[in-house]
Nucleic acid binder design. Structure first.
Lengths: 350, 350
DNA sequence: AGACAGTCTGAGAGCGCTCTCTTGACATGG
DNA sequence: CCATGTCAAGAGAGCGCTCTCAGACTGTCT
């Protein structure tokens, strides 16, 4: 009987094989493969040639068995295919993380619980140490994962600041500053009655962007006014509704800062049907600099976030946490960038 | 010196530990863990109790080392964050695949090459047998992966029918039939000059939907007319441009079948500015049943695709391929579903 | 009663790798 | 000339698991 175990072995070569061909011991080949400095150049060359000839690739399982590292990170997405999926935020973060990990030869394992049962088994899987670290994308308030992982000693990094009460490293963009810059831009354009359409106020993103808006108003000596604030949920529809409410409450508003481009687009359509000219009568700035920003009429000014960079930062943090032994929590906040387009052009003349 | 290898062991328990506690051999515990039938009930219970008490979780690396299975599949996405990401197709497929794999305790490893170099190392990684199977999402014509994987004997399943010349198992939706059903519906609504805005004609999706459109016209005895066809690239903007061209070529058209909802939305805005009433003057049907379909004015009729089901099917096919030893190529085609909304309401009276 | 299936359990090898410890070769210093 | 140090290379154990094979029982048939 051949040693084929029911399934062909993709590549027969092992450390042993390489060692034999190169006329050295397994240990030496291992040193070469892992870039140990204590191998003489000539032997190194010989081993490398043998590796090349055999097309040798290390067996991750074997390595992992002894090093107790899996070489992979888990990415958990706890979101019912909602917002996270319809806007391109998520894929971009993913790409950033992926880019960083690929260069380091690390793998990303995707985990998407669909049920509490799934969540449990995913928790088991992660705490069993099958991954070296975990990224959590959209955290719900009483998600059991952070504490389970902490208990198991598995490094964790969150995408986006968590709600108070959850302690973990995270990477976020500076939502507050982003909102500020948008409002400051509107002020600079001569606007005085600046309204906002906020995101959900039980989410840090929603809270922070509103806070930035208020701060900027105060700084500009404009003070805040509850009639200038309406809450949305990031969708286009909610933006439209919020805009209608704002127009009812403060018909004389001359600018709107929307906490997402989709909401801004919704607002735009309501303004159009209300006969308000954008940007002449009402200026508007969105958030995310998503694809819709350029396809609206007029194109939307928007706050751009460095989302891929965020993903890369997440990966880097995780790698650091795995390699270092300290369990210090880190947070990285990335700056945003205001993209000016026609929707917020300044008043022709004051 | 403690045996802690620089890093804490999440869970000390091994087969050995469970065996000792239960007073049996490693082999017996292994049988219980793997559900072998040849274990007497009482011993099984004892072992299960021990497993429970120790919180034992099998070490995947060790298992994988001997079984030569990794318990994971690779998902390769070769797409420059384009269309695939802005429309929710991709996340939904992902979710479908994930759902199926989670119930089977298999892992999904995400791979997103950003450069030819990445692609090469991903190819190395996959052919080295680090995964049991591979899913390829959007395949480019001279992607080297299919042949490399075939050579390495790694099961492969594609999402979407590949271009001719590439041989592999795949799962797809019935684009042709989907397009047919849309056009048949327009015909049934009394439309006679039915135009189409196609997708890119170098992609199977684009080709198939156009073919379905033509077939339906022929079947209805309407024949086809090049002036009724315009090509887009699935984006809203391209849809708008295509609609303008169609209106120029055939001002008297009374219906449009667009190969994506985004293009339909673009077409809608052009029709509005051209003063054509939808659906009174021009009926329109989109494709994908994406979120935009319900937020346009009027809401879009659209062809719905069972995308999650597609993902699940992909996973199932892959599992089958890994477990079975035959290398037979399989294809699974899923039926679509026409969702009727206001945009394609029939003519009031003929 | 003895031979023989049949069933369950244990012993033990070995998967491919890392890593500590030891050996061996050579140079240096007393 | 031997003791000592340095550095490259090899020997060998062992990571946690699966799986074959052999052994210990039980029950059945002649």
């Amino acid at each position: 009987m051949t040693p084929s175990n029911g399934r062909d072995r993709r590549n027969g070569s092992t450390l042993e094989g390489v060692a034999t061909l190169a006329g050295v011991s397994r240990a030496t080949v291992s040193r070469v493969v892992n870039g140990s400095p204590k191998v003489s150049p000539e032997i190194r060359r010989g081993v490398e040639a043998a590796i090349e000839r055999l097309g040798y690739v290390p067996n991750r399982a074997a390595r992992s068995l002894v090093t107790r590292r899996s070489g992979s990170f888990g990415l958990v997405i706890t979101e019912p295919t909602g917002r996270l999926f319809s806007d391109p935020f998520f894929p971009r973060v993913l790409r950033g993380i992926g880019a960083e990990l690929t260069t380091r030869d690390l793998q990303l394992v995707l985990l998407m619980p669909n049920s509490p049962a799934d969540l449990r088994r995913i928790g088991d899987y992660l705490s069993a140490g099958h991954v070296d670290g975990v990224v959590l994308v959209s955290l719900h308030r009483e998600d059991p994962l952070p504490s389970r992982l902490a208990a198991a000693g598995i490094p964790l990094v969150l995408v986006g600041r968590p709600l108070p009460g959850i302690e973990a490293s995270y990477v976020d963009v500076d939502n507050r500053q982003g909102a500020r810059s948008a409002v400051e831009h509107l002020v600079a354009g001569g606007r005085r009655a600046i309204a906002t359409i906020t995101g959900p106020l039980d989410m840090p993103v929603g809270i922070d962007r509103l806070a930035g808006y208020r701060e900027a108003l105060v700084d500009a000596g404009l003070g805040s006014d509850a009639r200038l604030e309406a809450t949305g949920d990031f969708t286009q529809e909610s933006g439209a509704k919020a805009m209608s409410r704002l127009l009812a409450k403060r018909p004389n508003l001359d600018a709107v800062f929307a906490a997402s481009d989709l909401m801004a687009a919704g607002a735009l359509s309501v303004l159009a049907s209300a006969g308000r000219q954008v940007p002449q009568d009402v200026a508007i700035v969105g958030y995310d600099d998503s694809p819709v920003a350029t396809s609206t009429q007029p194109p939307l000014s928007s706050v751009r976030q460095p989302i891929e960079a965020m993903g890369r930062e997440v990966a880097r943090l995780l790698v650091e946490a795995v390699e270092g032994s300290d369990r210090v929590q880190r947070r990285v906040i990335l700056a945003t960038d205001l993209v000016k387009r026609a929707s917020s052009a300044g008043r022709p003349s004051p």
